[in-house]
Design a protein around this nucleic acid. Structure first.
Lengths: 328, 328
DNA sequence: ATGAAAGCGCTAACAG
DNA sequence: CTGTTAGCGCTTTCAT
């Protein structure tokens, strides 16, 4: 392996000078710079970046903690975060937890071991307190998940508000028996949605039906199966906040099979404004998220922190928006 | 920062002994082992993994090169590869190229700089020769992309065969004007599909229509737009190998809008057996891939190579399968 | 079974 | 503008 020392020897300067050339320091004689660059070229020298990292105590790696990449929302979020990080000179290490607390804790250990400069959390099954304890003084920022902001910085959608609005929208249409789907009800973001759902009922003096709150519903298949259950037994449920466009698509397909007319007999509102919402008949009314804005702000903030720029604590909340199409 | 030296000092042994305890070496007195472990516990010591990497010249990081994570096929592929890598003790660094040759080359530079122990390539716009030149003697394995296998190991679907079969299936039904969609026609896998498409025509003594080969078609929206073009002008095209279930869904939606009956007036075959293929009406006939098998074999192979086990060169080809549903 | 010592490749005071 | 020097935290011979 060619090292900085070989370059120094062959170009008749010291290691420091080579290092300076490599790092674009000012104040180097053009003569020496050229000699060094020539030898670098000749020997096809590539700097050993681990040695550099070791010296500087930085990995230039940011971890992204995500439940599952094989998911229309999270793959989009990670795509956006990752490319922003790359643009700012950081590599991104993806860690899927598959909703395992154990795997999640292991990633925090990597952070403590300095294998990562920081972690971006997109979803968690642990409490803020436990996360803070696991990560200690190391850098962690939450994106997407609605934490308090007392333990680490947070960038998230106003899930509660937007679900409140969507629910109110259905309620205003005169529906009274509305369902609610979530993928994992134990996460802060889903809890926030549920609060919005319930609050909308409260504000109208109505009660929500506990039996119509469904958990672990996240895919097209889940939507189809749920629809089967709902429509076959001709339940009195009149509409649903589906929590995802994929679930909405499944419900719509299921309704068609059971000859339930949407939106006449049943209303559906999806989430995320995923292209699939355009492909169904009727097209899915949905809620658009703010992935791009969130990830840009977040990565900017994170990069500044890593580079030692003082940042004030933030909890930044983004407003989603309802997009009314044909399914309600 | 607590170091191995602090532990040594406080437990009255040498650095070497501490290192041995840390690495589970045999032949350490239980007495010393316990002393060391006690101090480690007390000081809450965490080993500095960059130092370790530096020493051992390994990053334990594998790069995954992918066009775009925000994509139903690639997000699933990366999800599978990444979790396999994690299980084997490697971190995965995701790099999206967004079809930029420049970004792709940058990743190969990272490999040369030893920032990565190896790269898994899922798609490329460069030639095998150029890739081989960029990566030099470093470890790179291709997954998904149909390279020759002469320059690096390859694990891929038999794209040509399976597209041949799908095309033949339509041809056997009596269709003669069939279209072909690809997301990026310049990649080896799409070229392989195209070969299969053409070969199926050849075998029947039929000509394919060059005007019906569409490039840069990959999303629901692309499918809808393409359908618009096809159906509005009542082209004589009778069916299409859509290249992706999302495109298929868009085409089906578009057909509905223009009152084209599928499969009576028009046939569609998707690709990947994505859940969206269940949500459309009619449901999409599609081709199932072999993501799980491919990524398991691949990561196993890669891990062995990194760990110094001699591996013979491989080009492993997996057979896809047509799933006939309602759209043809 | 253990310790001393060397060194991985690089950066950054410091001195000149 | 350049060279000397020390050292980052860890592993691994080589002795003992």
């Amino acid at each position: 392996m060619v090292t900085i020392y070989d370059i120094a020897r062959l170009s008749g300067v010291s290691k420091s000078t080579v290092s300076r050339v490599l790092n674009n320091h000012p104040y180097i004689s053009t003569e020496n710079r050229m000699k060094v660059e020539k030898v670098i070229e000749e020997l096809n020298y590539v700097p050993n970046s681990i040695a550099k990292q070791f010296r500087q105590k930085q990995t230039k790696c940011i971890g992204i903690l995500v439940p599952d990449l094989n998911h229309p929302y999270f793959s989009q979020l990670v795509s956006s975060i990752s490319s922003e990080c790359n643009r700012k000179g950081f590599k991104t290490v993806v860690h899927q937890t598959f909703s395992s607390k154990k795997l999640e804790r292991e990633v925090y250990t990597q952070l403590r071991n300095k294998e990562l400069d920081g972690i971006i959390l997109t979803s968690s099954l642990l409490s803020e307190e436990e996360i803070a304890e696991c990560t200690q003084k190391n850098l962690l920022v939450a994106c997407n998940e609605d934490f308090s902001g007392n333990y680490f910085d947070v960038f998230c959608l106003n899930e509660e508000n937007v679900t409140f609005e969507a629910t109110t929208y259905l309620l205003n249409k005169g529906l009274t028996k509305i369902g609610f789907c979530s993928d994992n009800i134990d996460t802060p973001s889903q809890q926030a949605r549920l609060r919005g759902f319930i609050l909308a009922h409260d504000k109208k003096g109505l009660n929500h039906t506990k039996d119509y709150i469904f958990n672990q519903i996240s895919t097209v298949e889940n939507g189809i199966t749920l629809g089967l259950r709902l429509f076959k037994n001709r339940l009195e449920i009149e509409g649903i906040i589906a929590g995802s466009d994929f679930v909405a698509a499944g419900l719509i397909k299921s309704a068609e099979i059971h000859d339930i007319k949407i939106p006449q007999d049943f209303s559906v509102i999806g989430f995320d404004n995923h292209p699939i919402s355009l492909a169904t008949t009727p097209q899915v009314s949905t809620i658009c998220n703010r992935i791009k804005d969130m990830s840009n702000d977040l990565v900017d903030h994170m990069a500044n922190k890593i580079n030692g720029k003082k940042q004030i604590p933030v909890k930044k909340i983004y407003n989603g928006k309802i997009i009314i199409r044909e399914s309600n």
